[in-house]
Structure formats: structure tokens, C-alpha cells
Nucleic acid binder design. Structure first.
Lengths: 180, 180
DNA sequence: CCGCTCTATGTCAGTTCTGACATAGAGCGA
DNA sequence: TCGCTCTATGTCAGAACTGACATAGAGCGG
């Protein structure tokens, strides 16, 4: 009964032991172009994974009232994760606020909507530059069995997504300008 | 304090009066490549919108124990929707199960992962064909002030998204085949 | 040594959403 | 007329998630 966030946590831990804090950082971006979560949710789910025996932790001395807990996968956790990977996934994200706004954009002033899309375009262009820098950091495409393959493949997807999105923003700005 | 789903409902109602059932159909796909919801959630939110005076309904005779309720926007609802449209949106969907699976795919058998992506690719190709048919139904690009502009613009985005996604699937299949 | 930021843990109320359950008329075909 | 599907409404328990609150050591600069 592990939630999807639970598997996200397992997926990050599969690359190495981490604290809840590290997991939060990994999943709030910049590396997390796939799933995000706040630390409150991560802590909740870590407790569940712990109860299910999919992760364990070593207590270390550290800051805060409770010290530091370095979590790692158990063999059971690794098996559960591997089995989940090849189960069919929900095809596409079901919620996209900008697309929803676009759907209702005929109601608003085109100039204001264009402004919204110019802001979005700038964000996408920033991300494209950042992802291209990250991609350049890989000398070659990692082999499919290496942990780096997962990072490279999601980066490829993220970059492709940002380019598609940027192209859409440009098209929208053009349409909104032409109609004015 | 209207939720995003509330605005999704307003956006659909802005094109014409509908029952909760119709709204559910519109938002479960095929037209809803932007936001989805189950009818239970839609009914909950309709009650909220009603309490806030953003929608009203006319009771009609119809099936079921409560008859039929045809909802329509109030002027206040229209204003609320128009104001919301140009407020900045969350840039990108934060959750994508397939990308998460990809991130962990180095753990699994490449042949099985390739299978997963072949299934996904088939879905995307189906949708591309469907969206292209829908796009062909528009003789010209609607003007920005017409309700159809919203539909056309989201369709453009959906089509572009499906193409990006299909390209990614093909790249993944190629990688997974080469590594075997 | 004071204050700041970063690391690090955790709780909790309230919101959003899902999946299952429940009810029942309308229209159609066998 | 029986049963099926479609239309149409609603409730509710529980899962998932957010945002705010709470605590406190570690390391740094002034």
C-alpha cells in the first residue's frame, strides 16, 4: 500500500543513504523534475516505509532536538521498488494550471494574457539553459544499468518538455499579439 | 478562496450552462487535457461555488432522485474567473509517475522497461491521431476573443505535449534496446 | 558572544481528492 | 416487461497534501 511518494523516496534512497532533509532538498528541485513534496509529507511517508520495513535508519549526532537519521533501503525496499518500476504508470499529469488558464483566456484582455505567457517563457528559457548545462556535464549517455541512466533519462525528458512548453508560449504570444 | 477545480468548473460553464454530470464528462477527458476530477469532487465544489454566489442553477425534471440541475455562471462568477486567468500560474505539473519510474529504471530489466515504454508510445500515438483529427476540424485559428480560442490553444498544447512525449518514448526504447 | 543562516527533526489543522457506496428516472432492445 | 445502459444526483471514509507552527544544534561572520 505504498503511495507514489513512497516510491519516489525509495528511488532517491536507491542511489545512496540520505536524511529526510536531504530527501526534501532532492525533491523540491533542482534535480526533482518528476515529483515534489514538502518535508512534512516526506517525514510522514518515511514513518510508513519504516513501519513496512522498506527503509531503516542509522541515528547520528546532528543538529536539532532529535539528532540526525540517515535512511537507507532494505533489501525488501529495493525489491518493492524494482517491481513497481515496470508496472504501468498513469500516462500523463492530470492537472496543469496554466493550460486551464489558457482554456479560459478568451475572457481576458489579450495583452494581459500575453504578459502572463512572456513571464512563463522567460522561466522556460532559464530552465532550458540550466538543463543544457547539466546535460553537457555528461560525457556520454550512461548505460541503462547505471544509476546515472535514470538521471540522464529524466533530464532528457525535462529538457524536451521545456522546449515544447517554450514553443507553445511563443505561439501563444504571437496569437495574442496578432489578435490585438 | 475558490480552489483551482472551482475555476476549472467556472471555465467550462463560461461556455454555456451544464449539469454536474456534463461537467464530469467534460473533465474526465477527452476534452479535458488540462484538469480532471471525479464527480464526487465536482459536486462538492459546485456546492461551494453556489454558496459563494459564483454559480446558480435551474432545476429541471430529469432522472435520479433529485432531478436535474442546470448550472450557469453568475456575473460575479464571470468576473472572478476573468481575474484569476491573468494571475501567475504554477509553472509545471509537479508529479509525473512515468518520469519517476524512469528515474528508478536502472534497477529493472531493460527489456521490461522497454515494454512499458512501447505501451506508452502506443497511447501517445493514438492521442496524436485523435488530436490531429480535432485540429483539422478547425478551419482557421479562432480569434483570441472567441470561446473556441481557448479550446484551440489547449489543443495545440496537448498535441505538442504528446509529440514531445512520443519522441521521448522512442528515445527510451532505443536506449534500452542498445544497452541489451 | 551575539545573531544569522543552514541543517535537521517533528506535529497538526485543514484542504483536496479518490473510490466506494447509494439512489433512481429515461430510453432502448430482446 | 425485463433487464441493460445511460443520465443524474448525492454522501462518506480515508488517503494525500499543504502551510504553519515548533524546536534546536552547527558553523559562520562581525
Amino acid at each position: 500500500m505504498t503511495s507514489t511518494l513512497g516510491f519516489a523516496i525509495l528511488a532517491v534512497l536507491a542511489k545512496g543513504a540520505r536524511t529526510g532533509y536531504d530527501l526534501t532538498a532532492a525533491m523540491s528541485r533542482p534535480l526533482g523534475y518528476f515529483w515534489t513534496a514538502r518535508h512534512s509529507q516526506i517525514h510522514t511517508d518515511l514513518q510508513k516505509l519504516l513501519a513496512d520495513g522498506l527503509v531503516r535508519f542509522e541515528a547520528e549526532h546532528g543538529p536539532g532536538p532529535q539528532g540526525k537519521k540517515v535512511y537507507h533501503l532494505t533489501p525488501e525496499g529495493r525489491v518493492a521498488l524494482r517491481e513497481w518500476v515496470t508496472e504501468p504508470a498513469r500516462a500523463r499529469p492530470e492537472r496543469d494550471e496554466l493550460v486551464l488558464k489558457t482554456y479560459a483566456s478568451w475572457l481576458a484582455d489579450p495583452a494581459e494574457v500575453a504578459e502572463l505567457f512572456r513571464d512563463q517563457l522567460a522561466l522556460h528559457e532559464e530552465r532550458i539553459a540550466e538543463y543544457e548545462r547539466q546535460q553537457a556535464g555528461f560525457q556520454t549517455v550512461p548505460a541503462t544499468g547505471e544509476p546515472a541512466f535514470g538521471s540522464y533519462a529524466t533530464l532528457w525528458c525535462g529538457l524536451s518538455y521545456e522546449r515544447h512548453r517554450a514553443a507553445w508560449c511563443r505561439w501563444m504570444i504571437e496569437q495574442l499579439g496578432a489578435g490585438a
